[in-house]
């Protein structure tokens, strides 16, 4: 490339100082081919996204007012009293097992699982490919199909039959052993569902991550839209006024 094209402002130069480094570029495993200058290709997208996000937020803020109830009153318990929506999944779990297990141990275990993912899956061959493979897509779908009805079933079971009305004493059994056994069985069952695909490590992780995400959303939705007075199950249109926590 001649200097005129590369650096038109350097009129007085007809040479360039170029050094070839004997090591790979910071683009791991990639040469400069397959790249484009950030200006304008990347920055246009970022600017558009910024405008899009701002515009959407502005419209939303004009149309919908943030809720404001009566002033806080410690003597007047809200019924139902709900956590913010992203913690409602935990509050839902709380209804089904010992609160230490639901509120602290399970979320800690989930965070530990999330953090360990990259150390479990060391295979680079399928990096950058959505769902790893066709098999991975099927595994995602089947994991969802497996998880949703079981969770809904368990929620209904605990409303209408209740583990604690079958066996309430000692707390160790309904609060810890039964829920842990159920969660263990659910996890084992998930593996059994995807095993016929002969999944590799990443695909097994896809199954479990999908299980986690689906659980997060199902529990959040159940607790947000289907729990009314006393956190009992109800239908969204029968919710008491102000039961939505956002």
């Amino acid at each position: 490339m001649n200097t005129q094209e590369f650096a038109p402002q350097q009129q007085d130069k007809d040479y360039g100082l170029v050094e070839v480094m004997g090591r790979s570029t910071p683009m791991v495993n990639k040469g400069p081919e397959g790249t484009l200058p950030s200006w304008p290709y990347l920055f246009v997208w970022e600017a558009l996204l910024f405008l899009g996000v701002s515009a959407m937020l502005l419209v939303m803020s004009i149309l919908i007012d943030a809720p404001l109830r009566e002033a806080a009153n410690p003597n007047l318990t809200e019924n139902p009293a709900k956590a913010p929506w992203y913690f409602l999944n935990l509050q839902e779990l709380l209804l089904h097992m010992n609160p230490s297990l639901a509120g602290v141990i399970v979320p800690t275990a989930v965070l530990a699982f999330l953090m360990s993912i990259p150390y479990l899956d060391r295979n680079l061959s399928d990096i950058g490919i959505w769902f790893a493979s066709r098999k991975g897509k099927l595994i995602t779908i089947w994991s969802t199909i497996y998880t949703v009805p079981l969770l809904v079933g368990l929620i209904l079971f605990d409303q209408y039959i209740r583990v604690r009305s079958l066996i309430s004493e000692p707390e160790l059994i309904p609060g810890w052993l039964i829920p842990m056994a159920v969660m263990g069985l659910l996890s084992a069952g998930l593996y059994a569902v995807v095993r016929p695909f002969r999944p590799n490590t990443r695909e097994v992780l896809v199954a479990y991550f999908t299980g986690f995400v689906v659980t997060f959303f199902v529990l959040t939705i159940a607790s947000t839209f289907f729990r009314g007075l006393g956190m009992n199950l109800t239908l969204p249109w029968n919710l008491p006024p102000g039961a939505l926590s956002f």
Partner: peptide, 17 residues
């Protein structure tokens, strides 16, 4: 307000476990 007071009560109760 009532929403925030009781949400934080519920949330910090969870931490209390």
């Amino acid at each position: 307000d009532q929403l925030s007071f009781w949400a934080i009560t519920v949330g910090t109760n969870i931490a209390g476990y």
